Amino acid sequence: MKKINWNNVRLVLILGIVIFLYSFSSKRNAERMMTQAEVEFTDSENFITKEIVNKLLIQNFGSITGIQKDKLDLNKVEKSIGKNPMVERAEVYATVDGKLKAIVTQRKPVARIFSGSQSYYLDHKGGKMPLSDNETARVPLVTGDIAKTNAKKLHELLDYIYDDNFLKKNIIGLSVLPGGNIVMQSRGYDYEIMFGAPINIDKKFKNYKAFLQDAVRDTLITNYKTINLKFTQQVVCTKK
């Protein structure tokens, strides 16, 4: 008579119990009712609020409370939040304890555009973004004949300013002249920065920073009317 291997029997029983408990736990988890929704933002901007996101959820799904976990279409929830013009993307998931978590990334404006009667933000991807009722972005104001300059190059210029801590704090305005050249205004100084066409961006700003260091050191900065960066080999200034 063949001897029973009790070790194998025990392993099979343990495996069966584990599978049963896992299936039971998964079924209970799927049938769990959602208890509440929590909204988190990945950034500090307040172009959209938690209250607005919660209203979007209610408008599309009614009360989240009481919805069975496995009946909730998370992809649909993400898309409903992502349709808001202030939102770049949303990630939604359900926790084990029945909470709906929404992680929201807001769009990042790099400039405010004034074009005719229109006023809107330009975001870091080059898309139009409406103004917010909740917060005003501290970004450069862009005015003038905006259609006369290369839109892609203008966006590269605005992105460059946004990504540079010094320029982001100090460049407060850009005017597009009829020929497509750009004039900038600086915070704290009343001179104009003649930038020219939005090309050779890195070189022009490096020249500007080097000039600024020397001018501030020599206390001559308040004597200038214009700072011309059009020529990449030198900075040309005119005095008041």
Rank of each mutant, 00 (worst) to 15 (best):
K2L: 12
I4A: 07
W6M: 10
N7K: 15
N8R: 15
I14Y: 11
L15Q: 15
V18S: 09
Y22M: 15
Y22E: 11
S26P: 09
R28E: 13
N29A: 05
A30G: 12
R32P: 02
E38Q: 06
V39R: 05
V39N: 01
F41T: 04
D43Q: 13
S44V: 15
E45V: 10
N46W: 08
I48Q: 02
T49E: 04
L56R: 06
L56Y: 14
L57E: 02
N60F: 12
I64H: 06
T65N: 14
T65S: 09
I67Q: 10
I67L: 14
Q68A: 07
K69G: 04
K69M: 14
D70F: 06
D70C: 07
L72F: 14
D73N: 14
D73H: 11
N75Q: 15
N75M: 08
V77T: 11
E78Q: 15
K79T: 12
K79Y: 05
I81W: 02
R89G: 01
A90L: 09
E91N: 12
V92N: 03
A94W: 01
V96M: 12
D97G: 08
D97M: 13
G98A: 07
K99C: 10
K101G: 00
A102P: 01
V104D: 03
V104H: 04
V104C: 03
V104Q: 03
K108S: 00
V110N: 03
R112V: 02
R112M: 05
I113S: 00
G116E: 02
Q118L: 06
Y120P: 00
K125N: 13
D133I: 04
N134P: 02
E135K: 02
T136S: 15
T136M: 14
R138I: 09
V139L: 07
V139T: 04
P140Q: 07
T143R: 00
D145T: 15
A147E: 05
K148F: 05
T149P: 04
N150E: 03
K152C: 01
K152E: 10
H155V: 09
E156K: 09
E156P: 00
L157N: 01
I161Q: 02
I161L: 11
D163L: 15
D164K: 02
N165D: 13
L167T: 01
I171R: 08
I172T: 12
V176K: 12
L177R: 14
V183D: 12
V183S: 08
G188P: 09
G196Y: 04
G196N: 05
G196Q: 01
G196F: 02
P198I: 07
D202Q: 15
K204T: 10
K204H: 01
K206E: 14
K209P: 10
A210W: 08
D214W: 09
A215I: 13
T219E: 11
N223T: 07
Y224I: 10
K225Y: 11
K225L: 13
N228P: 02
L229A: 00
L229K: 05
Q234H: 13
Q234M: 09
V235N: 03
